[in-house]
Simulated assay, not measured.
Amino acid sequence: MAEQKWYIHPVIAVGVLMNIFVMGLALAFSHDHDAMWRLLVEDGIVEWMQFLCFTLLSALLGFLAVEQWQREPKINLQLAAFVFLSALVGLAALEEISWFQRVLHIIPPDFFVQNNRQGETNLHNLALGKSSLHKAVLLKVIVIVGLTHTIFLPLLARKRPAIRTFVEKFGLYLPPVWPSLIYVGLVILSNVVVDHPRKGELGEVFGAVHYLTTVVAAYFFGVNYGKPPVFAPSRDSRNIATLFCLVLVFMLLIGWMLSAGAGAGAYIASHPGFGAE
């Protein structure tokens, strides 16, 4: 069903509130140099939250692929979309923490030491001219695709429902408009009011939370989605949605704990002058 009142579904509502909470942390820490670095540093709260969101989303998309195969055991666009997106998001999760390089204290191969702008074992920070692959190419693609998927197509679909039907034929979905507007608004706000060299991490975590919650709401509970969801509307589906909301809040707590342990805390302890410049 194409659900217009997105705010009545707890999964999306909690996702919006979590993003607002993170934005509130950034504003609260804006005058505290050390606290801001703990929030945005490599393996900090925001980065671990991105990893957890992407990892869970990849697993859920994989589950949807299996569910789709069980319902209809043949290769089609829906199955291909779930498999591709699961792999893509899983790659993003591993790239986010440099394939566990810092957690496991792995020395990067010579190729990455020489060609990665941050000396990390990942692809998105590979040098590309005077910039990195992420800034020169990936960021522009993400902005164009993100705005098209979250804003332009959902707005057009309100007047022309055939657009939603066309998108769903490819195994995709369109998120509700208002959560998307809030997400984009938070990204813009973070870039305007936050003065920090790593403020772009805020936009990335906003996107991770937004896509995790809207994917779950669409495919699992049928919010703003025309095909049959995994869970038909019932008391059990509402209970499952509530439990998922608890998982979201727990993920934020785990991200905070990881950043204080093997993540940002260890990084800061080994770099006493970090961020001084």
Rank of each mutant, 00 (worst) to 15 (best):
G222Y: 07
G185K: 01
L153F: 05
H149T: 04
E42S: 13
W99Q: 08
A218W: 04
V143K: 15
F100S: 03
Q101V: 00
V66L: 11
G263L: 04
F82N: 02
L60E: 09
A127I: 06
I163P: 09
V215Y: 09
Y225W: 15
Q101F: 08
E47I: 13
V66P: 09
A59I: 11
L39W: 02
N191Y: 14
T165R: 14
V89Y: 02
L27W: 09
V46N: 10
G119Y: 11
A87D: 08
I75N: 04
E277I: 11
V167D: 01
V205S: 02
S58T: 13
I188E: 11
P154W: 07
R158Q: 13
L85W: 06
L138C: 06
A65G: 02
A217K: 10
Q101T: 08
E42G: 15
L25F: 07
L85F: 10
I151E: 14
S30R: 01
M36C: 07
S237C: 12
F100Y: 03
A217Q: 06
T148H: 05
H196V: 02
P175G: 05
S237E: 11
W256Q: 04
R38K: 07
L138N: 05
V205I: 07
E42I: 02
N191C: 09
T148K: 02
A65K: 01
F111A: 10
G15Y: 05
H33D: 03
I188C: 14
A241E: 06
D110I: 10
L147N: 03
P175S: 04
L123N: 06
G203I: 10
F51G: 01
A2S: 12
M23E: 08
A232N: 13
L25N: 04
W6F: 12
A266Q: 14
